[in-house]
Design a binder for these strands. Structure first.
Lengths: 107, 107
DNA sequence: CCTATGATTCGATAATTATCGAAATATGGA
DNA sequence: TCCATATTTCGATAATTATCGAATCATAGG
């Protein structure tokens, strides 16, 4: 994962509505959530939601599939893991974050 | 760590110069790097660098200390770990990222 | 074919963020 | 005190991002 892509992913997540949407999508799992449902739940106009979802998709953090008239968005765990990997490698000094994660994951 | 703070941290890191600066600071460790040295290494005017460092500081990702005429910036590992913790908890569906981190950290 | 529904695109505008030279502030040494 | 260095603050401007109604596109059902 190169810096350019990392910046797009971080930018995508660094916005109130997008972070909230992504969290809902992570919670929803592979089933995903329709664009309109997200707009409703976050109380954001459909066109605004569409704009934000496009950012997330552009960053590769979500996938989309059509299901009848709806477009269903789902979190891409692989992309998120790649981002986490980059941050752990490059922004955590290697050892410190790994150590903490190890404490969490291995306990 | 609340969403508001997370967004500030993500915003801080989602900019070319700031991500680059933060990476250098992580690499430098607690010794830190002077503002002017960062500006020089990243080939950014001093006033622009100052602007970006202020963003990182505001997000709590870096600390600053004066040393004679220089102001030395250093990465705050604790803040970065808190951010990683939030992302792992809220944006990775819990299991998936932890599992991957575990694979990395415990291998 | 017509209508309704779900979503995106367009276009205009507002708001935020980035850039950077010049001026101001702080420190240290002659 | 005076000068040089290191950095920040100011101010003006450019660039990017967010907002949202209206128009458009795609799908489904009668």
């Amino acid at each position: 994962m190169q810096a350019d892509h990392v910046i797009r992913a971080l930018s995508a997540l660094s916005q109130e509505h997008r972070l909230a949407a992504f969290r809902l999508l992570v919670e929803a799992g592979s089933e995903g959530i329709a664009a309109g449902t997200l707009a409703e739940r976050l109380d954001v106009p459909a066109s605004s939601m569409s704009f934000h979802l496009a950012q997330l998709a552009n960053a590769g953090l979500v996938t989309q599939r059509r299901e009848s008239r709806s477009i269903i968005y789902a979190a891409d765990y692989g992309a998120m893991n790649a981002l986490m990997g980059y941050l752990t490698e490059n922004c955590c000094g290697g050892a410190p974050c790994e150590a903490q994660n190890a404490a969490n994951a291995c306990a």
